[in-house]
Write a protein that binds this DNA or RNA. Sequence first.
RNA 1: CGGGGCGUAGCUCAGCCUGGUAGAGCGCCAGCUUUGGGAGCUGGAUGCCGGAGGUUCGAAUCCUCUCGCCCCGACCA
Length: 448
Amino acid sequence: MGLNPVKVPPQSISSPGNLHAPVHLFPATLKETPSEAQIASHRLMLRAGMIRQASAGIYTWLPLGLRVLRKIETIVREEQNRAGAQELLMPTIQSADLWRESGRYDAYGKEMLRITDRHDREMLYGPTNEELITQIFRDNVKRYRDLPKILYHIQWKFRDEVRPRFGVMRGREFLMKDSYSFDLDFEGAKRSYKAMFDAYLKTFKRMGLTAIPMQADSGAIGGTLTHEFHVLAETGESGVFYDVAYDELAAKGEIDLDALSRLYAVTDEKHDPTAANVPPPERLRTARGIEVGHIFYFGTKYSKAMGAVVAGPDGTPVTVEMGSYGIGVSRLVGAIIEANHDERGIRWPESVAPFKVGLINLKSGDGACDAACEDIYAKLTQAGIDTLYDDRDDRAGVKFADMDLIGLPWQLVIGPKGVAAGIVELKNRHSGEKQELSADSALAKLIG
RNA sequence: CGGGGCGUAGCUCAGCCUGGUAGAGCGCCAGCUUUGGGAGCUGGAUGCCGGAGGUUCGAAUCCUCUCGCCCCGACCA
């Protein structure tokens, strides 16, 4: 796989062959909050028109939400590829027999959605893919020289949570990136683990998030090396404790893995005030965290049960060492909003924004104003800038409010007064800073 | 899985206690006036009151069952 990130071609939801046609987003925004939503990200995703609930914990992704999901997915994919992982795609529906090999068919419990097909064969909607990937590996890799391997896919999962909540943050159906590493020995497995650890820090950073790796309970999957990655947000589900040095390290461009892994950072259930590396009280931060990633080394748990064995250097069979590495892609959409919003709406980091620019025509129907908007929209679109053009025949206040709610990084406001004076207004959604400048300077700023 | 709550117009909700045949605000449609931060006036459309059964002359309202959804707690990317 290539080491360079893939440049994603600009998407347009305009009709094919007519890239300049403005599009009225489907559906319209909501002025009032649907009563089902409690936390900010859920409310804002409903109001902005990103998702609609289909059943408890199951959502339809509307055009605006899907764009964000795809952007996140792309960043995750690029960083996985860069780390040397190879993408494949496993199915959502799996055979119960495969899960009996690992013993998890009986162990998993009611969280697993079990299905029977027309022949009464037992199937399941995959909550994770260790069994399937181990089968793929064991059937296709027989010699140690083909190691190491890291394989991943980005696929919908289903876990029949007793109580889904918080919108996409804790749905039953969710999009997850899961990687699986295969190594000949523990030293190799540790290298794979570190490669993923490093990739995760880069991935979350690119999304504008501070994600702190926490020593985590290994839970049901079992193992020794494991970290949870938590995004700090007031509404996080877990309490976290961490050394303030994380903030200092995170502010730096370079990630020092060894320095990071020595620091104290744990979720509240693992917090031990008497631990050796607990920082002094003035250096110990407490916060709320949203778990967006979880990585495990679990040795030969699945490879042994399922016979994933390669011929080692001396010809004798070696059971491979494995790890798995998850990122909650759909959860990240909610997590990013939790970390980036204000009373007016969402404030997207540019890297994951559904559009980079929101073009507001303050007076649709005014010839000069329409012409100025259409000209600048065409230029932005041709330059590959994702632009949402609001040319609705509505009052200015409605458009401002909607644009703030949707939260695109840049708002380009064009009205008749400005057009007459040769200026447009450029507003930064995050800082709130506005500046008046010529259309050409605005273009240069957005394109350059 | 324990505990609590809610299903009435596209959305937010009132009406239910104390049965008498459907309401408000916002949104939507039309017209006029407005027009740089969710406009004003006038007129209009919209409901199997979640579903089934029961009580009653009569049920959104009372009773039973059922389905869906939300919240708190225990569990998870």
